[in-house]
Design a protein around this nucleic acid. Structure first.
Lengths: 317, 317
DNA sequence: CTGAAATACGTTAGTACTTACGTATTTTCT
DNA sequence: AGAAAATACGTAAGTACTAACGTATTTCAG
C-alpha cells in the first residue's frame, strides 16, 4: 500500500479509509440481520439509550460532533420513527430527544448483534483491535494536551533556524553511522553480514583502506551519513548513504553526496561507482542528478545480495 | 469521552474523528506556512512525485480511492495549476496525469514542511504515533485476510445457536469468578483488599457463610457471574455481579439476578440488599427493574469505598 | 475480422458531514 | 426592568467523498 510508505504524512487518509471500512462492515451486518438501524445512527441511539432523553447539544458533545450534525441526523431518526423531538418546557431554546418505544424495543433486540460485532472484531483483528483502540485513546488524550498543528509549526521554525552542516567522521559519531544505515536496511531489506561488519567498525573497513565518512548535522541532530570506500587504488565506491526518515526532504542526501564527490576529486580518484537497489527510487534519482550513470548490468563480484543497480560517476556525460 | 465507552462498536466514528483532526491540523499548517496545497491533495501529488506521470486508475489504486474521486480531485488540481491531464497516445481510454513545473517546485519546497510534520507528530503524540501506525497497518492486513462483516455474521450465528445457561458454583469455575469481576473493577475503580480476598477464595468468604454463586454460560464460554452473600441470618447481600464486556446485551445479567433472587427465596431470606456505584447506570437500572429500591443514603458500615448506591429488594413495591 | 466483453474515466446524484448564518429564548449586567 | 450577551438549534451552502451510470476505446473470442 502506497499510503503506508508516506507514514505520518498520510495519517488522515489512512484513518479515513479504515473508518469507512468499519462503517461499511457494520451496515453490511445490520442489513444481513435485518436490524432497523444504520451504522451512523449508533452513537446517537446508544447515547439516548444509555443516558436517557437528552438535548441536541448534550448528544453532540457526548459523541464529538457538531450540533447541526446531530440535528440533521435527528431528522432522519424522526422519519425512521426512532426518536421524538420535544421542546424542553423548562428552557424554550432546547430540544429534548427521546427514544420511541419502537426504538427501545429495537435496541433491546440488538444486544446479540452488538455482542457479535465485538466478538467478530476480535476474531478478525485479534489483538490488533485492542492495540488500535488503545492507540486511538492515547492519541485523543495527547492531542488534547498538545495540539499537533502548534507542535508542527514549532518544529518548522526550529528546522528553518538550524544550520545543515556536513562534517567528517569522528569517533563520537560511530553509533550514528550504524543507526542511520540500519534504519533503511531494516525497512527495505535485511542487514547482511558485510553490513554488520562495516557498520560496526567503520574505522577498520572504510577509513583505514583510504576512505572517508561524512555526516549531516541539523543543529544538535545527526540526520544522515555517507561513505567513500577505496576499493583499489584510485577506484572508489560510494556506499552507506543513509538519511533519517524523519529528516528526509531537507537536502541532506544531496549535500552528503556532493561532499563525497568533492572528496573523491580531492584524492584524484579515477573511478567512482555505487551499487543500489531499484526499489530505492528516490535515491537512484538523486544519484542520476549528481552525475551517476546507470550501467546495463549489475557489477561483477558485488558484495551485496540486494544490489540490482550499478552506477558509475560520469560528470557532464 | 462517551464514544470510548462503546469500544469496538464505535470504531468507525472514532477513527473518523481522528482522521478529521489530522486533516484539519495539516491544513492549518499549510495555511500558516503559505504552502500552496491542501491536505487532501497530498496522496495524489506525492504519488505523482514519487512514481512519475500516472493514469487515473493507477493513482486511485495506489492511494486506495475510487477512480472518480481521483478524477474529481484532478479537476481541482488542474484548476490550481498543479497537474496536467493528457490523453495516453498508446491507449486512448487512459488519462495520464503529470505534475506541472510549478507543482514540482512547490513540492520540492515542501521538504522542510513535511519534515516538520513528522517531527511535530512525534512531539505531540510521542510513541503513540508509532503505535497508531503499527496498529493501522496490522488492521489493514488482517481485514484483507478475514473480512470483519463475515466474522461478525458467523459469531452472530454461533451466539444465537448457543444456549444461555445459569449454573451453580463449581471449583473448576473459581478462576472465572475472579476474571469476570476483575474486569469491571479494573475498568471503573480499582481492586480493594476485600475484593482480592473474596474473589480469590469464594468458597471461604461466600459459600461457607451460607451464600451461593452462580455463573452464566454461553456454550463453552463462561460469560458472567453473581453471588449471594449471607451477611447475618436471613440477611443476604447481592454482590460480585460481573458480565464479560464482550458478552453484554445477551441478558446474562438479568438471568443471573433472577437466579440469585430465586435462591434468596428458596432460603427464606428476610432481607436482600446490594451496594453499587452510580457510575454503573446500566447495572443500577437492571436492579431497579428486578425489584430493588434505591435507598436515600449509603449503607452504614459498608465494606466498599466505591459504594455510593444502596438498594434493598422490595418486590412489588 | 467482427461482435462481445472488458477497461478507463468522466458525470451525476446522493451521503455525511462542516461552516456560516439566522432566529428564538434565556442569562447576565447595570 | 431593560439592554446586551450568551445559548440552543435549525437551515443553507459547501466539501469530500461513493455508487451508479454512460461513453469512449481496447482486448478477446471464434
Amino acid at each position: 500500500m502506497y499510503l503506508a510508505s508516506l507514514g505520518k504524512l498520510a495519517l488522515g487518509s489512512r484513518l479515513k479509509a479504515l473508518s469507512d471500512h468499519f462503517y461499511g462492515a457494520a451496515d453490511e451486518v445490520y442489513r444481513a440481520l435485518g436490524a432497523p438501524i444504520e451504522s451512523r445512527w449508533l452513537p446517537v441511539l446508544r447515547y439516548l439509550w444509555d443516558a436517557g432523553p437528552s438535548t441536541v447539544t448534550d448528544v453532540a458533545m457526548a459523541i464529538g460532533q457538531t450540533h447541526s450534525a446531530v440535528s440533521q441526523l435527528t431528522d432522519k431518526l424522526v422519519r425512521a420513527g426512532m426518536v421524538r423531538r420535544r421542546r424542553d418546557p423548562a428552557d424554550g431554546r432546547r430540544t429534548v430527544l427521546t427514544l420511541t418505544a419502537g426504538a427501545q424495543d429495537a435496541l433491546a433486540g440488538l444486544g446479540p448483534t452488538w455482542c457479535a460485532v465485538r466478538r467478530g472484531v476480535n476474531v478478525s483483528l485479534e489483538e490488533h483491535a485492542t492495540h488500535l483502540l488503545d492507540a486511538i485513546a492515547a492519541c485523543e488524550r495527547a492531542l488534547k494536551e498538545r495540539p499537533v498543528a502548534e507542535a508542527i509549526l514549532a518544529e518548522h521554525a526550529a528546522i528553518k533556524a538550524a544550520p545543515l552542516e556536513i562534517v567528517p567522521y569522528a569517533p563520537a559519531l560511530r553509533e550514528h553511522f550504524y543507526r542511520l544505515n540500519a534504519q533503511w536496511l531494516e525497512r527495505h531489506f535485511r542487514i547482511e553480514d558485510i553490513d554488520r561488519a562495516v557498520l560496526g567498525e567503520p574505522e577498520r573497513y572504510i577509513l583505514q583502506p583510504g576512505g572517508a565518512i561524512f555526516f549531516a548535522r541539523l543543529g544538535e541532530d545527526v540526520i544522515g551519513t555517507c561513505a567513500l570506500l577505496q576499493e583499489s587504488p584510485g577506484v572508489f565506491e560510494l556506499t552507506k548513504m543513509g538519511v533519517d526518515e524523519t529528516f528526509r526532504g531537507l537536502g541532506a542526501g544531496k549535500r552528503l553526496l556532493e561532499a563525497c564527490i568533492a572528496e573523491f576529486r580531492r584524492r584524484n580518484g579515477r573511478t567512482l561507482f555505487l551499487e543500489s537497489n531499484s526499489r530505492l527510487q528516490t535515491a537512484v534519482r538523486m544519484y542520476e542528478k549528481a552525475g551517476f550513470v546507470m550501467q546495463p548490468s549489475v557489477r561483477a563480484g558485488s558484495h551485496y545480495e540486494r544490489a540490482d543497480v550499478y552506477m558509475i560517476y560520469r560528470p557532464g556525460a
